[in-house]
Structures are given as structure tokens and as C-alpha cells.
Design a protein around this nucleic acid. Structure first.
Lengths: 348, 348
DNA sequence: ATCAAAATTGTTCACGTGAACACTAATTAC
DNA sequence: GTAATTAGTGTTCACGTGAACAATTTTGAT
């Protein structure tokens, strides 16, 4: 299967020089005569030299410091999941000298992000994993990283203007389409569909709008105008607004489905009685309260953004880059999982 | 985050013995006085010694031969997917000296399995990954492995009587329930549900019966006897049998859904016109022909057995065991993915 | 008590890499 | 012509492990 593994010693013998010279050529450390360089390069062209990562790692024998910068899970429990992925990755890679320090910021406080980001930079890590919810502030942060030559991978939020080493996330537009597909397949075919955005910060908007766009595009193609849509942006005072909106809609309108674009789906579920439910409720993310409502039947489908795997992959690729000096993709879109009360157990 | 990494040298110093003695204790190579052993063990209890895998791998510097034994993808294209997973795993682990040789057997020919298994054993691999479709023959094979001290991981088919190092697969009963849940949510609520088993070999039966059991159990709980079931076992002469069964059922009965327990779902789809379809068709596996029918709308849901990941994990665990000398679980059940025409693209 | 055998312990090498260091030959300065 | 500099080359060490090998101590036999 795999060919003979060449070592620098082999190359040295083939090129009739010393191992030192081979090494100088490989790492462009200069102090090599034109003639010797030519001989070595010739050999390198003929064989496919792959440096032995194991030996290199042993030789370097240093601890790679990775820092993570994510929203605090105490404010939004969605962010517990990435932590699990990070810990799994740590478990896999600490034998290769990877160490991880986690930093958290308040997702409702831009200045807190800046502050924590500064502390992170000051700790001089070798690589960074972050979920950059605040675009403007993140770009400043990324600029600093770039200046320092610090590689960073991002998850959850794609800030495509930045020069990240790799973004790991999902196609939000497509996830909206998936929600629509599920709703279309399970609903009665006329009535009004309610779409809820929950957001403490406007910075998330592009996210949710992409989902809504996918959702509506699907219906535009499949549904011949039997249904109408109404969108609600709930920024604050969730309790009060939501209750009155739902009370009103359920009483006066023929609701054929509800789509929530965030992990706050359970907030809507609160006000629904499963026995009276005649329309599907579809939302996002496997947070505890959503899972509870999924199992009880108030929520029909959840779309899994796979935050655990996103974080794992983010650390994975940083390791590939920093420890194994491998190339990594600049973008990886993860599968979009459909979760029901029957398959949820296999995802936990 | 991670504590100081102790080396055998550190232990030697702490226990006031030489590295050689420490090594003899660690590997139980004997020739150590009671007193010295006690000193070393004491230190080992106090610190958490984790041998440096990198150094060990470099030192051992040998190539681990893994052999895989799967049904030929030329006979059933389902088996293409595991090959992809195997190749991905090879790509990940060949830097650690893992090499893989793939063997294939004819899934309709037990004696061919025995023959190929013999060739595999003769090649003297260090570990084996297999999907053991034939129970009796597999048990003989596994016995040989056990005698030779050869670790093997199994995927797809759980032969729980065997002493595999690890089985990677899915909960078949639960996957049947998932299919039922999807059908229940999308169908009209009365009529007859057709269940199809496709199988060239009876050996697969337990598989399919588990799925059927999960499927029916779900309906027993959720459906108040509005629906009836009819099960078909199609062994041979698929073309002819199937067409007449479907023609007959569609003409004379009120069909409310079709559930196919194997990757041969597309065979049923062949005879359905999407425009006339008033009931859901649900089946298994992302083989090309199923994907085509999913996209065209003839198939509504596919359940993904994740053969690619199964194989990847199988190799992964063999590597953990053979290269990194880690402990591995004896069983891992993978998530059961629900696939529709809208999320299929994210899984390919 | 003396020597041989056995038991125990300590030292060294190899794995492949990367870089410091040591060495040789050629060039420059005076 | 000789010393000092520099360019180019080769050698050696460290990383941590595992095992062979060498050295030392203990035990047993006479």
C-alpha cells in the first residue's frame, strides 16, 4: 500500500552529501553551495519525501497552546456543546502536546468581547478557535492575530472578510430549506406560517435572515400560494411579547406551522398544548429545554447545528496545522442533522 | 490545563533507581527486586504517568498492517461507502505507520467468504476490520483470530457471541421507530402500510426483523389501530414479484405508506409515479439510486446507516489499540441520520 | 574463603528530525 | 606569506521509549 518511507539519511546518501546539508536545503537555512543544493533538489524531485511527523514532534517536544474564545455558556446554554467538543479534542490530542485554555465572553456585551480578546492575545497562544458573534469587533481582533502571525479557526459565524485558517459551520440558507421541507411534509397545506427570530443582539441578524430566506424560497417553489407568512423579531421582553402574539394568533388565525430560527424554540413551546397542536413547530439546536419539549411532543423537529463537532473540528484543524504541519481546508460545512424525538437519543 | 508530563527519567529519579528498572516495572519484564519494584510503584501511584506515545511510536518504528474484509461493492454498491471511510482513516493514520489492505467477498457466497478470510489470515495482519454478514462462518473466522491473538473490529452486523474488540453500528430497533415516526408525521392516518424486506440471504433476517419490530412498536403506541400492516419478503426474482405486488396493492387497497428495510428502496420507487403518490416511501441508505429517487421526490426519507463513519471508526479504534495502546469501547452506536432531499447534499 | 552462577541494576543505542557545534578549505587583509 | 575571516560541510546531541547489553552485587556451592 504505502511506499518506502525515505528519511533525510537516505536523501543524504543518494545525493552524496551529509544529513546536515540535506536539512539546510529542506529548511532553506542557507550556507549551502549551489552544487550541493542542486544535487539534493534532484533527489528530492525523484523521491516523494515526507518528513516523519512523529520524529519531528518528538524533537520539537513543545506544548502547543490553543486558546478558545466563545460566548459564555452561563448566558446561553447553547454554548455548552462546543465545550464538550473542545474537551474531546483535548483528550484526543493532548498526547501530542496540545493544551487548551478557554476564554468566554458575554454575548450581549461587545466591549466585554474586546476585553477578553485582549487578555487572550496577551497570553500568547499558538492558535485560536473562536465563534465571532460581533462582526466589527471580531475583524479588529482578527487583524491583530494576522499581524502576530497567529492562526485562528472560526465556528458558527462565518465572517468571510477575515483571513481565518478555516471556518467550520453550516449552510444556513440550506438549513432554512430543510426546515421548510419538514414543515411542508407534515403540515396541513393552507394557513399562516409564523416565523420567529429571537435575538438579543442585532449582530445575529444576517444569520437568521439567511435561514428565513431558505425557508421561504422552498415554499415559493413547492407551495402554490396557499400559505402566508408573518415574521416576528423578538429582541427583548420575550415573555410578554411572545405570549400576546401567540394568544392572538392562535385565537384569530389559522396557523399551519411555526418556525423558530434560533435555539430559543422552547420559548414558543411553552405556550402550546400538545393535545391542541394541529401544526408543526420546528426550531434549532439540542439545548436541554428544547430536548425536553421535543420528547414531550411540543416540538416536532429540531435542526442540529452540531456545535460539538464544529468545535472539535476547529481544534482538530488547529492541531493538524500547528502540530503536524499539514494543510487544512479554508472552509468545512458540516451535515445538517434532522432531530426528532425518536432519534434524539442517538445524538446524545 | 494539562499537568507536567512525567517521563521515565523523572520516575527513575523520584524512585531513586535507574530508568532500566522503571521500564522493567512498567512492562513487567521481571528481574526487579521486591524493594525496587515497591519504590517505583509508589511513585507511579503518586504521579499520573502517561507514556509519550510519540516517542514510543518513533521507537517502535514499525508498520501496522490492518486488513479489512467487506462485501464487494461491485455486487452491492452500498459497500462503496465503507471504502471511503477506510481511505479517510488511512489518510489520517498513515503518518503513524498504519497500512491497510482491503479484501472483498461475495455477499451471496458463503464459501467465498471462507476462502477470502483464509487468504486474509495468511497475510498475517496486525488487526482486522470486518462486516460479518454470515454468522456461522464469521464465528469460525473469529475463533481463528482469537487463537492468533488478532484483534478485530466489526461494523454493520453485530455478532454479539463473538469476542470482537469493538462493534460499531446502529440500534436497528430504534431506526425502525424513527422510520415509523417520520411516516406517522407525514402520512394520512388510515390505510395499509406495506413493509418490504429485500434479501438475497436469510442471514440478514435478524437485521430486518429488528427494524420491523421497532417500526410496528411505534405504531402500536401512537396509532389507535387505524392502520394495518402487510410484510413482504422478497428474496429472488425481484422484478417480477415486486411489480405484481405493487400493481395489485395500489389498485385494490388504500395504501398509507411503504417502509423498505434495506438499501433496495429504489426498487420500490421504480414503480411509483411521484405525481400520483399520496403516501410516504421511507427506506435505508445513501446509495446512488436511492439518492436519485430522493431528489426526484419518489422517496421521502432515507435513514443513513453511516457506513462511511462506521468503517472510519473501525479503523480508528484499531489504530488506538495497536498504535497508541489505548483502551477502546466494546460497542459504539452511531447517530441515526434522517435524510431528505434538502439535507442530502450536506451529507455527501 | 573463593569462585562461579544467578540476580539485579545501570548504561547505551536506535528510531528521524532539527539545530547547534565543530571542522575544513578557500578567500581576504595586511 | 601568514593570520584572520568566511563559506561550506560534516558530526553530534536531544527529544522519550524500549530493549539489548554491560556492569555490579548477591547468592550458593565447595
Amino acid at each position: 500500500m504505502s511506499l518506502k518511507k525515505y528519511t533525510t539519511k537516505d536523501i543524504a546518501k543518494l545525493a552524496d552529501v551529509s544529513r546536515g546539508t540535506v536539512d539546510r536545503v529542506l529548511h532553506r537555512r542557507g550556507k549551502v553551495s549551489e552544487e550541493a543544493e542542486k544535487k539534493v533538489r534532484k533527489v528530492l524531485e525523484e523521491i516523494d519525501y515526507q518528513p516523519n511527523v512523529i520524529a519531528r514532534t518528538l524533537r520539537e517536544n513543545k506544548i502547543i497552546q490553543i486558546a478558545t474564545l466563545l460566548p459564555s455558556p452561563e448566558i446561553d446554554s447553547f454554548w455548552k456543546k462546543p465545550m464538550i467538543g473542545i474537551n474531546e479534542a483535548l483528550h484526543s490530542y493532548n498526547t501530542f502536546g496540545v493544551s487548551i485554555t478557554q476564554y468566554f465572553y458575554d454575548q450581549n456585551d461587545k466591549s466585554n468581547f474586546e476585553e477578553v480578546a485582549k487578555r487572550l492575545i496577551d497570553s500568547k497562544p499558538d492558535g485560536i478557535l473562536t465563534a465571532p458573534l460581533f462582526k466589527k469587533e471580531a475583524l479588529v481582533f482578527f487583524d491583530q492575530c494576522h499581524t502576530l502571525g497567529l492562526p485562528y479557526t472560526t465556528i458558527n459565524t462565518d465572517i468571510s472578510e477575515s483571513q481565518y485558517a478555516c471556518f467550520i459551520g453550516q449552510d444556513l440558507y440550506q438549513s432554512g430549506r430543510i426546515a421548510a421541507d419538514l414543515m411542508f411534509k407534515t403540515q396541513k397545506k393552507s394557513g399562516k406560517i409564523l416565523i420567529f427570530h429571537f435575538d438579543e443582539e442585532i449582530s445575529n441578524s444576517p444569520h437568521m435572515q439567511e435561514k428565513e430566506r431558505g425557508f421561504k424560497d422552498y415554499f415559493a417553489k413547492h407551495d402554490t400560494n396557499n400559505q402566508t407568512f408573518e415574521t416576528f423579531n423578538l429582541i427583548d421582553a420575550i415573555e410578554h411579547n411572545l405570549k400576546s402574539i401567540l394568544d392572538n394568533s392562535l385565537k384569530n388565525e389559522n396557523i399551519s406551522g411555526i418556525f423558530v430560527t434560533t435555539s430559543k424554540t422552547f420559548e414558543v413551546a411553552k405556550y402550546l398544548r400538545p393535545t391542541l397542536k394541529t401544526f408543526p413547530l420546528i426550531g434549532y439546536d439540542l439545548v436541554d429545554e428544547n430536548i425536553k419539549n421535543l420528547k414531550s411532543g411540543k416540538i416536532d423537529f429540531l435542526i442540529n447545528q452540531n456545535p460539538k463537532k464544529q468545535a472539535f473540528q476547529g481544534i482538530h484543524y488547529l492541531t493538524e496545522l500547528l502540530v503536524f504541519k499539514k494543510e487544512i481546508p479554508t472552509k468545512e460545512l458540516l451535515p445538517i442533522d434532522i432531530i426528532t424525538k425518536e432519534n434524539i437519543s442517538t445524538y446524545l
